[in-house]
């Protein structure tokens, strides 16, 4: 655990993230997938296609860097700025279905792609939201994101089918959150025994 940090508002929480090595299993997993699929493209589609994809995705990464930098800054700052007591009350582990619904709604209405929603979720979780609320927020965004549904989905798919998908998906963020909370409780009980 890292040392707590004292501010005028009281004690800033210790850094919740575990200590990480720069190159760990997660990195090597992503690397292995890139190497395998890269080899696959090289063998089946030739060097030129391989080079084109590599260059265009490196360009995309470069283009995304300023956004990611801002996302990281936002997530880190939110963890320090958001009032912990309020975050805990509204989307903490004891916030019940209402907390999960708040998180899912936030995920659904906040515009922006992964570089926005993931940092926001991270910031909220560092400020007291539990894993279930974090998952409900991410799920709300990916299943019910208004922006994506209105702009893209309705362009391509018939409206009655879109409506059916959205209606069926409505309870999913909350159900996943409830499932995770039950799993966390179950684990805690088992560890206590």
């Amino acid at each position: 655990m890292r040392p707590a940090f004292t501010t005028t508002q009281g004690v800033m929480s210790p850094d919740p993230r575990p200590r990480r090595r720069l190159f760990d299993g997660g990195f090597f997993f992503v690397l292995a997938i890139a190497l395998c699929s890269g080899t696959g493209v090289l063998v089946t589609q030739g060097w030129e296609r391989f080079r084109d994809i590599l260059l265009s995705d490196l360009g995309l990464a470069l283009l995304l860097l300023p956004k990611i930098a801002a996302g990281v800054l936002l997530a880190t700052a939110l963890a320090l700025v958001l009032p912990k007591d309020k975050v805990l009350r509204h989307v903490g582990p004891e916030s019940g279905i209402r907390g999960l619904a708040i998180a899912a709604t936030a995920g659904a209405v906040i515009p922006g792609g992964p570089a926005v929603t993931f940092p926001l979720t991270l910031g909220l979780m560092s400020a007291g939201a539990d894993l279930a609320a974090g998952v409900a927020m991410v799920t709300g965004w990916i299943l019910l994101g208004l922006n994506r549904t209105i702009v893209w989905e309705l362009t391509f798919l018939p409206p009655d089918l879109v409506l059916l998908r959205v209606l069926l998906s409505l309870p999913v963020p909350i159900l996943l959150g409830l499932g995770l909370r039950a799993a966390v409780r179950h684990r805690a009980r088992r560890q206590a025994e």
Binding site: V30, L31, I33, A34, L35, S37, V41, Q45, L54, A61
Partner: peptide
């Protein structure tokens, strides 16, 4: 992120 995006691009092509 860089390795992930490149890997994603290759996966998509496959």
């Amino acid at each position: 992120l860089v390795v992930g995006l490149v890997g994603a691009g290759f996966l998509a092509a496959l």
